[in-house]
């Protein structure tokens, strides 16, 4: 079996969200749905010190993330119907829409907030790794759309060889919960998992 993985280069990302919009366009997603989301982290403040000099501790960075097609997906573990499943050939996690009952358990359980129930469609929806493109030897639309070339996609061995580490910066949880196939090259401003400075500051946009 092949296991695919995503790569995110935090030193290249400008936070433009082209990846998110390209995905929404390609997958024809309505308002309120995005399979790839860009999380923004900002922290610190700027003050005048006793000498009247302006000092700043401000920092900020973005993390572009979709489904991480985890080795131990939280969504498939809780799914009552088996609709949410990990493909034996590609390792990609997707929804069998003929089985899904739309209970939303996958949405609750996923610590990366990847699946969501679309009541109009009657089932859970999520990033499927653009499986049809991948089968044709192409990369997912988000990766190809990125103007800064901050995203990549390939087999987990190829992606791990790019020099990042398995998703372990804020605002993500520690990777031990689901063993995600997501590798990140962090920017200088990136905060460790659990850091008080590592809050996602655009919750209305990403949730």
């Amino acid at each position: 079996m092949v296991q695919y993985a995503f790569y995110f280069d935090g030193t290249r990302c400008t936070g433009c969200k082209t990846c998110e919009l390209a995905c929404k366009d390609y997958k024809d997603l309505d308002v309120g749905f995005a399979y790839r989301k860009v999380y923004e982290v900002t922290y610190g403040d700027t003050q005048k010190d006793s000498n009247g000099c302006v000092v700043s501790t401000c920092g900020g960075y973005t993390v572009s993330m979709a489904c991480n097609h985890c080795y131990e997906p939280a969504c498939t573990k809780v799914c009552p119907t088996g609709a949410m499943h990990k493909d034996g050939e590609t390792g990609l996690v997707s929804v069998n829409v003929d089985r899904c009952v739309g209970c939303g358990y996958c949405h609750m359980a996923c610590p990366y907030d990847a699946p969501k129930v679309d009541r109009a469609k009657g089932h859970s929806v999520k990033c499927d790794g653009c499986v049809e493109r991948v089968t044709n030897g192409e990369k997912p639309v988000c990766v190809e759309a990125c103007p800064a070339r901050a995203l990549d996609f390939g087999t987990v061995d190829q992606i791990a060889a790019l020099g990042g580490t398995q998703a372990n910066i804020a605002p993500l949880p520690v990777p031990t919960y689901t063993d995600p196939n997501f590798y990140i090259k962090p920017s200088d401003d990136a905060q460790p998992v659990g850091s008080a400075d590592g809050k996602a500051v655009n919750p209305l946009e990403v949730l």
């Binding site: 573990k77 809780v78 799914c79 009552p80 119907t81 088996g82 609709a83 003929d98 089985r99 899904c100 009952v101 739309g102 209970c103 939303g104 358990y105 129930v117 679309d118 009541r119 469609k121 009657g122 089932h123």
Partner: peptide, 19 residues
């Protein structure tokens, strides 16, 4: 449920799914 018609599928993961 978004699709109650699929409700019979909910027993598929009996034992492993808490739901």
């Amino acid at each position: 449920l978004a699709t109650p018609a699929h409700a019979m599928n909910v027993f598929t993961n009996l034992g492993s799914s808490p739901l």
